[in-house]
């Protein structure tokens, strides 16, 4: 417990969509090499929050982010910062699998090519193979790397997206409801994968499934109406939450 290092910390984080405020004073510390689950009813700001962590909200014109977000102590929510460097460091897996309409190989090689991580074909092959192995997809696709990534099943597509994310060696992986479009078997595979990935990466996962949060995470944060009501170890949250609302939500009495 003593050696736990804080990877990401936010201070007084407020987010606005045009004039509507989506997040209110979020203060939160996410630990390195741990899985943090964010739960809460739809529209409570979970996704908005993790999209702040890799500046993905920049894509949305009307979105304004105020406050401080530090990764390894460095402020990332400031102007004149190369957002691409942050995104290289903080990868993201989306709700719906979104492989590019390219071959499986090119999907994984996309990031390394852009950042010039491989000097020759051989080392690129290695990166692709390792990423696919880490994403537990290699055995299923090694004979058809040249086929389109969009032709895989939903679960395979999502693991391809995870492979794509880890191909550029990020430090943090954000997952925005990565299993909500998948069947239970594919979900189980992804959860297994998350367990392995936390050895190397810091993982933040947004989920609607209580059992998933309980299974995969070390810490859990409960969001409600744009505020973080409770943040604690997963064990504590699920066994003995401080907040009545948290208790109600977890037991399925609302939300």
């Amino acid at each position: 417990m003593i050696n736990e290092k804080i990877k990401i910390s936010t201070k007084n984080l407020n987010v606005f969509y045009a004039s509507k405020q989506a997040l209110f004073d979020i203060n939160i510390n996410l630990k390195e090499n741990k899985v943090t689950a964010l739960i809460g009813p739809s529209g409570c700001g979970k996704s908005t929050f993790i999209r702040c962590l890799n500046r993905m909200n920049d894509v949305i014109d009307i979105c304004k982010v105020e406050g401080s977000i530090k990764i390894d102590g460095d402020e990332i929510n400031k102007k004149n910062l190369d957002v691409n460097l942050i995104r290289e460091k903080v990868g993201m897996v989306f709700q719906k699998p979104n492989p590019f309409p390219k071959s499986i190989y090119d999907n994984v090689a996309y990031g390394p090519r852009i950042h010039g991580l491989a000097e020759n074909r051989e080392s690129l092959d290695n990166i692709v193979e390792n990423s696919l192995k880490k994403a537990a997809l290699w055995d299923e696709v090694k004979d058809r790397l040249n086929q389109p990534g969009t032709g895989l099943s939903g679960g395979q597509q999502q693991r391809l997206c995870i492979a794509r994310t880890i191909s550029i060696n990020p430090e943090v992986i954000l997952m925005d409801e990565p299993c909500s479009a998948l069947d239970p078997i594919a979900t189980a595979k992804i959860e297994e994968l998350i367990d392995e990935l936390k050895e190397t990466y810091t993982i933040v996962i947004v989920t609607h499934s209580m059992s998933q949060a309980a299974r995969v995470s070390n810490d859990t944060g409960f969001f409600h109406l744009g505020k973080i009501l409770e943040f604690n170890s997963t064990e504590k949250i699920f066994k003995n939450p401080d907040n009545k609302l948290t208790q109600d939500y977890i037991t399925g009495r609302f939300g």
Binding site: N54, G91, K96, N98, F100, T165, I168
Partner: peptide, 24 residues
């Protein structure tokens, strides 16, 4: 989602346009 996928890998707008959007 394709744009976001590309941006989340640290690709710039022109890289995204050239390598993902235009082929698609």
């Amino acid at each position: 989602s394709l744009r976001e996928g590309s941006f989340s890998l640290g690709a710039t707008k022109s890289e995204t346009t050239k390598k993902v959007i235009l082929p698609a």
